[in-house]
């Protein structure tokens, strides 16, 4: 009896190890990603970070590559100069404030409205729900550039629709470009328009995935509508909300094409009123050919992303804190 089960076991083990051996070919299946990541992800990031310790333009590096003269590099070495300059650079801090302001105006209302829309769409008795869902997705397939072009016109000072409407209700025109907060609002509107529907669909999927029993037992316990949302829906959607916040932060801090198009250049408006961090990076690196300084800005952006991601993580953990009870 035991002998038979022994042989069965060992035969099974042998079969398993044969599978494991066969499956090692899987390493070749994942290899393309990792090789590609090293070449086009890790190496550029490491070397761009290294560039932050030098002060040189493209030509200088090109000379180094062609002539292999190390003196070119040692002459360009700048130590921490770029970071010191960055720390004192009022434009960088302005860009940081602008980026945050736009990010806040776009994220907070967007997530709230998306959640509301998702709740409406989640109703199983809704007619033509495929149509509504698909309609919400249309803005997301449009390029950021096209979006920026349309909204630049819609927010035009003299003949844009928004100011024309204000004109008819007897309000004086708003400086959608020259004003700081109005320009942030205009850029946030572009982001909201493009992402609202997409985020609604993500929320909708998360809502539909919540087990119905939870709602039934909440109803049995006599929970109010708000209590149901607070203690059932939101904790159940913890992962979705975290994912959205993290991705939204990375996208928001990388904000670039909208302000570039809206202001028609790398300055972010006449008074840099909507200069963003990434726009500033490109201005320094590619317009002013200050590669080292641009790289230092990139390092600054990464630090900000890491800090915000940590805060996001803590917030969502505390929001979902009641889940375990």
């Amino acid at each position: 009896m035991t002998a038979i089960s022994q042989t069965l076991k060992s035969r099974k083990r042998r079969r398993m190890s044969a599978i494991a051996r066969q499956d090692r070919v899987g390493l070749f299946y994942v290899a393309p990603f990792f090789v590609h990541f090293v070449l086009f992800g890790a190496i550029p990031i490491v070397f761009t970070t290294a560039l932050a310790f030098f002060n040189a333009d493209f030509q200088t590096y090109y000379e180094f590559i062609t002539n292999h003269q190390l003196s070119v590099l040692t002459n360009a070495f700048a130590g921490l100069d770029n970071f010191r300059e960055l720390f004192k650079d009022s434009y960088f801090w302005l860009a940081l404030r602008n980026t945050f302001s736009i990010w806040l105006i776009s994220t907070v209302p967007q997530l709230i409205i998306a959640f509301g829309l998702a709740s409406l769409l989640a109703n199983a008795r809704l007619r033509a729900s495929t149509f509504w869902r698909t309609a919400l997705m249309i803005p997301n397939i449009t390029s950021v550039l096209a979006v920026a072009i349309v909204f630049q016109q819609l927010f035009g000072r003299d003949f844009g629709i928004f100011n024309v409407l204000l004109h008819y209700v007897g309000h004086k025109p708003i400086e959608w470009v020259a004003g700081t907060i109005p320009s942030h609002f205009a850029i946030a509107t572009m982001i909201n328009w493009r992402w609202l529907g997409y985020n609604s669909l993500i929320f909708l999927a998360a809502i539909l995935a919540i087990p119905k029993e939870l709602y039934e037992s909440a109803a049995l316990d006599g929970a109010s509508r708000w209590q149901t949302v607070r203690y059932v829906t939101i904790p159940q959607m913890k992962n979705t909300i975290t994912f959205m916040l993290v991705m939204g932060t990375i996208g928001g801090l990388g904000l670039f094409v909208e302000p570039l198009t809206y202001g028609g250049g790398f300055d972010g408006g006449a008074n840099s009123q909507f200069l963003t961090m990434t726009l500033y990076l490109y201005k320094q690196a590619f317009m002013n050919q200050r590669l080292g300084y641009g790289a230092a800005i990139g390092v600054g952006i990464t630090l900000v992303v890491m800090i915000i991601s940590a805060i996001n993580f803590m917030i969502t953990r505390s929001i979902a804190g009641e889940e375990s009870k």
């Binding site: 550029p44 990031i45 761009t48 590619f286 590669l291 990464t302």
Partner: peptide, 19 residues
């Protein structure tokens, strides 16, 4: 790696492309 900001490596990537 999905959490790395895309703009971080772009300066060096551009240099590689031109080389």
């Amino acid at each position: 790696t999905m959490m790395l900001p895309a703009q971080l490596g772009v300066i060096f990537m551009y240099m590689v492309m031109s080389w």
